[in-house]
Design a protein around this nucleic acid. Sequence first.
DNA 1: TAGTGGTCTAGACCACCGT
DNA 2: CGGTGGTCTAGACCACTAA
Lengths: 277, 277
Amino acid sequence: MAPTASVEHEELPAPSPDEVAPRFAPLYRQIKTLLTKRLRAGEWKPGEPIPSETELAARFRVSQGTVRKAIDELAADNLLVRRQGRGTFVASHLEARTQFRFLRLRPDNLPEAKPTGEPHPAMPGERSVQGQVLRSQVLECRRARGSAEIFRALQLRAGESLVQVRRVLDLEGEPTVLDEIWLPGARFRGLTAERLANYSGPLYALLEAEFGVRMIRAEERIKAVTAPAEVARVLHVKAGTPLLRVDRVSSTYESEPVEFRRGWCLTERHHYYNELG
Amino acid sequence: MAPTASVEHEELPAPSPDEVAPRFAPLYRQIKTLLTKRLRAGEWKPGEPIPSETELAARFRVSQGTVRKAIDELAADNLLVRRQGRGTFVASHLEARTQFRFLRLRPDNLPEAKPTGEPHPAMPGERSVQGQVLRSQVLECRRARGSAEIFRALQLRAGESLVQVRRVLDLEGEPTVLDEIWLPGARFRGLTAERLANYSGPLYALLEAEFGVRMIRAEERIKAVTAPAEVARVLHVKAGTPLLRVDRVSSTYESEPVEFRRGWCLTERHHYYNELG
DNA sequence: TAGTGGTCTAGACCACCGT
DNA sequence: CGGTGGTCTAGACCACTAA
């Protein structure tokens, strides 16, 4: 394909006469890497469209099909969202479709409606998601110490500053989850209880909009425990009630961990839902 | 591409002048559907190769790229496995790579080794998977009644026969999971405790090899509970110990449910691991 | 060496979207 | 309508595997 005359041509990184790791990376993966770097660098912001496939093909001097395959993988990784007839967009936690992508707690009844992502109207301060009414209430937000485990998970040196957020999630009006969240202070300086309280939306949407940090993926480790006294008090249950303790480490681009979260979940009327493929 | 002269041409289902559901299905999806039907019908058995892309293209009178895209999706769905230079094979629970694909329990220590699927040698009756030693001990296998919930999950009419298997999983030599498994009697007639005891391998591998039922996907619903007396006895813990109760419904081709399983998991030294994308 | 999947290209046409 | 992504084709070439 002849590149459009007016389009400036950007060279691919030199064919690397003698690289180490994957001796030969397919062209479309090189393109994918380049696109990932630009996303990470913020060249296109969440919610914005990236250039069309044909334009990218011209820029990189490859065929449209090759760009397409790179974008296919980025879309499969949830970094990009394709919209037929409109373009390809940088994924965002601000959009209804991808909000609460990481929330795995479901009410026990409710005929497992496939997540449509179309929110229903709800009371102020509440959000409706997958048919359940959700309300978040911030208990505190302060600089805090963290365990060695947390520093390790976030790949920080001991002594680096941490911000801790504690909040309760009400599902259907009942306090159901107590979240204890630790964030690296360096990235999230200026996060306060007020800003959290004034913001009605998912936490990740706020972190994305205000701090430019987009959560891409996470891993969770789940145990069954008995409720500590303090947790029990917040969730209005007796100390010793069995709870799900869900530890989550979430990451941005290139698997860089930026959040450690410990959720204490009451599963009297809810469950953690998971699909195995 | 001209079809090989010796290859018999199989017509695609007539272009359906006026179908209902997805008014226009892309060609590659029609191919995917055809291939799925043949897999389901057992035209190619687990572990066997399917015809090459070029041969399928000739049979279906489409280009190789179209077949390729259909196979791509089937591979992404874990129905097929591609092996460069060798061919494309029907996925099987009998192979090391895909054994224990559904086992989400991990030891707490152990530096989260990515599942390599390469088993280490182990004692007879034991299997080594992801660095942990695993031993399954069948407690019983008998015809049984089931709750309304189970019949609903398996889409059976009340009164149809059920087989129940109860077993303990030892991880690192410690009893860690009590599984209560219900299977539709019609499909698994002849399953006995002896056959289970004599078989050293994953349950799903046995069900696949002996009954021709291949588990494709599953959904799990998890709660935190306290151990009932009977469960506690088997796991060597005090009644009331917090446990993960994992309810699983697994399905074959086309989401046909064929197993209900309730696992009681001790999480003193293990956790349920999950990745969110 | 022959056969398989994997990559890349180039171009045609379609479905969808906003104007 | 023009532009975008989505599908389909046809053929060339590469990398891997087994005989």
